[in-house]
């Protein structure tokens, strides 16, 4: 197996694909968004509960995802849920910016640990959209109006 492929299918990715974290609908969710990758049919819904504490910015108290797709998209969504919990919308945006940098250039900032597993994606440009699907859905969910029924949003073309 080539080095590129080993780099792409890292153990941490295979692990999250096989045993996804925070998978399923979240009954207490007050935000939801749905992401589609129209080229391959991958789907990802992200459910989250934004907690409002007076005088403080809203934070993600709980988060989950469901959907179907390739190992990269499923593992990325799973890992994303573990990374954004407890964060505010601007913090999630900042983290996504780093993640996007990782999957498009292969360079991970020093402070980033688990997400660096996705550095191998940069050698497979066709798979970048797989890796970012869950993130796009999470960001859409953060932007969405509270307590809405699931909406479909096209993923961005990176």
């Amino acid at each position: 197996m080539s080095a590129d492929l080993t780099e792409l299918y890292q153990q941490v990715i295979l692990d999250h694909n096989k045993r996804p974290r925070n998978r399923g609908k979240l009954p207490t969710a007050n935000r939801v968004a749905h992401g589609d990758n129209p080229t391959c049919g991958d789907q990802c819904s992200v459910y989250l509960r934004l907690e409002t504490v007076l005088g403080q910015p809203d934070r993600i108290a709980e988060i989950s995802f469901d959907g179907s797709g390739c190992a990269i998209s499923q593992a990325s969504a799973s890992l994303m849920t573990t990374q954004v919990k407890g964060k505010t919308a601007p913090e999630v945006q900042a983290l996504y910016k780093s993640f996007h940098e990782i999957v498009t250039t292969g360079n991970a900032p020093e402070e980033i640990s688990d997400l660096a597993a996705f550095a191998g994606v940069h050698a497979f440009p066709a798979r970048i959209k797989c890796a970012t699907l869950g993130w796009h859905a999470a960001i859409e969910a953060l932007k969405s109006d509270p307590l809405v029924t699931p909406t479909t949003t096209e993923t961005h073309h990176d």
Binding site: D4, L8, C40, G41, S68, C70, S73
Partner: peptide, 25 residues
């Protein structure tokens, strides 16, 4: 195993396949 993972592995073997919904959702 998702079709995209299969197609990525096959590509590494020089085998060009197509994975997806084949315009038939």
């Amino acid at each position: 195993i998702h079709a995209h993972d299969i197609v990525t592995f096959a590509d590494e073997d020089g085998v060009a396949l197509r994975g997806g919904h084949h315009c038939n959702q």
